[in-house]
Nucleic acid binder design. Sequence first.
DNA 1: TATGAATGAGACTTCATTCAT
DNA 2: GATGAATGAAGTCTCATTCAT
Lengths: 207, 207, 207, 207
Amino acid sequence: MARPEVSKEQRQAKREAILAAARDIFAEKGFHAAGIADIAAKLDVGHGTIYRYFENKLDIFLTLYDALNEELLRIARGTHPETATCVEDYITEMQKFYAEFGGVFLREISHMRIFFDEVHADPEIRRRFDVSQVEFQKATERFLLIGRDKGFVRPELHIPSAARILNAMILDAMRASVQKESASNNLLLLAMTVIEIFTKGALAKKA
Amino acid sequence: MARPEVSKEQRQAKREAILAAARDIFAEKGFHAAGIADIAAKLDVGHGTIYRYFENKLDIFLTLYDALNEELLRIARGTHPETATCVEDYITEMQKFYAEFGGVFLREISHMRIFFDEVHADPEIRRRFDVSQVEFQKATERFLLIGRDKGFVRPELHIPSAARILNAMILDAMRASVQKESASNNLLLLAMTVIEIFTKGALAKKA
Amino acid sequence: MARPEVSKEQRQAKREAILAAARDIFAEKGFHAAGIADIAAKLDVGHGTIYRYFENKLDIFLTLYDALNEELLRIARGTHPETATCVEDYITEMQKFYAEFGGVFLREISHMRIFFDEVHADPEIRRRFDVSQVEFQKATERFLLIGRDKGFVRPELHIPSAARILNAMILDAMRASVQKESASNNLLLLAMTVIEIFTKGALAKKA
Amino acid sequence: MARPEVSKEQRQAKREAILAAARDIFAEKGFHAAGIADIAAKLDVGHGTIYRYFENKLDIFLTLYDALNEELLRIARGTHPETATCVEDYITEMQKFYAEFGGVFLREISHMRIFFDEVHADPEIRRRFDVSQVEFQKATERFLLIGRDKGFVRPELHIPSAARILNAMILDAMRASVQKESASNNLLLLAMTVIEIFTKGALAKKA
DNA sequence: TATGAATGAGACTTCATTCAT
DNA sequence: GATGAATGAAGTCTCATTCAT
């Protein structure tokens, strides 16, 4: 029986070429409208070939989705509020997180559609989205809990709710930056406003 | 002669029966996966019958979408921050809005998918979603501008960004209550936390 | 058992109203594209009503077709070449036929589509068209045979072929007058040219 | 790499197999009644296969129509009346045309329905038919004009009308040979009679 | 391994006809 | 008699996936 004619590395390289092409196609057309034929055409490869590297269309999508999701999760889990010795440090840590998270967003901006839009194209995609939301929630809760333990966060705040809300603000800021048309899609301004509201609230101080 | 055999009321009743069935099907399967056949089967009528009442599948969807959207917009536009004479009144007005908005959400909880998820199933749906987002944004900006004029909202806040963020918090709170699995889907708690963060921020007062 | 509530006359009047409406619709859209609903709408009558007077769509069409066909056949059979005492009379008889035949065409010009275009929309229509062609052929053969017997028509001419050809020229002249766009749709000019070619041929006399 | 697996020739062969099957189906049922399913069944392939080779049903039809039309037009334009030096040559040229034109008809006899009958099945078919009729008309006018210039054709003849009539005779002669039932469907006899009538007229010479 | 030809389930939509009122 | 609501067969077309080469 013949040895595999291509090495593991070559196989992996091909998989990644397919993923790269698929990412563009999904970004452009969305999951449903994107066809295996489009991906194959972009690579100048027969569409049957795709099926030698991936189960099916969903498999490709989920691979892309998982990779993006993991990168974002890694960032969310990589904050270090425990090193903060004062509120200013704590806020700085939050800003650092925003900067890193936003950096990935801006890099992947044209592909974020697979993260926001196609969530419900398939039950399995939805399931993974829901799972990852829980993970993000946990990461943010951890950030807030440490802040509370250190006395930076008001103790009466309901942490799970606050975490959820903070995440919503973050994700929406990102989402806004994806929408070219929006009048308020300045990511920096949004991020600053999120932090401002989160830290100081929107209301004026009573005199 | 050539008088309608069924009254306007009967016709309207049938339309609404179709809309009700369609709403369930769309909620269960999503726009793409839902078939006219599913709707017809649920009503135990021939599929041709559906086409006597609606142009096509999209027509049904948009009718449902528009109705929901209008109801939500009416609520968003129905706030009265201009009557507030003190910050407490202003906050109360916000709470009233939350209560009304949330009421619709809880009633329509199983059908909100058509509002959030199916945005990209069709260009026309997307267009209407985008338009309505702008309207929600405007309504919230108005709320904040009046608050700023009255001295309740910090003047240095960037209103469009703040409005967007506030909307994101509101919508996410609603969205959370749709997800049965979520640990933090207590709508009341979320709403209170949103208002708390929005008014006072999350950070502890310095001693 | 109740006597019929409408008289035979009333029933016949309704049938004819339906036929009149159908004729317009068929002329406008053609057999396939025309819908029973169109006919009913034109009469401001329920479409079910149509079925109380005619079997189905084809039945209506065939009734119209037969009526038109019979009128044209009656004219074709109504020529009197036997009274001609000289070639000039014979030609005059042919001209009289053309005038009468053409008169019906011009009157029915907007409905001739059912005669020319819809011949093959259904096997039964085709069958009747073929049958009527045979009848037209016979009528023309009779005209030519009498002309031959009287010495007006060249004896060596193959009468069935000549009859067929003469019919083709006649029908095409009519057809041409139906086509508005055609540059050579002057019915009079065409009719005159048909007679000229038929009587004298197209070639120049040798000097 | 990405080299076609089947050669251009194989692809073309398949296209032609589909065209051949479609031609039979269209001849048998007509454009409307013919289904893609019928064509696929005749070839014993899935219906999807058809769509790999043609856009849609109309595309198949138009391909057949255009091919036939072009062949006939080429013949009509290929006459050489300008080489005739006497009337006999001119008539011979007309006979040659008839022989060639009739040959195609006899070969395609069972498929001519797509040329005559289906003209009104679709606006695009009609458009092409009308265009080609103008071309046939032009070709015949040219034949007659050259004949007139050379003194073979009577100068007082209205050429566009005569061309139209001549075409009608030709086409009807062909059409006749398609109809099995007709008593006068002997193409040779018809063609001879057309030429005889066209050249000498049908009437007897006065003594 | 790579290919792309073939497949056919599945979705939408139309409209002639039936029939209960 | 009249109506028009309901029906569902029929037809077109798409595209993910299989598989012989």
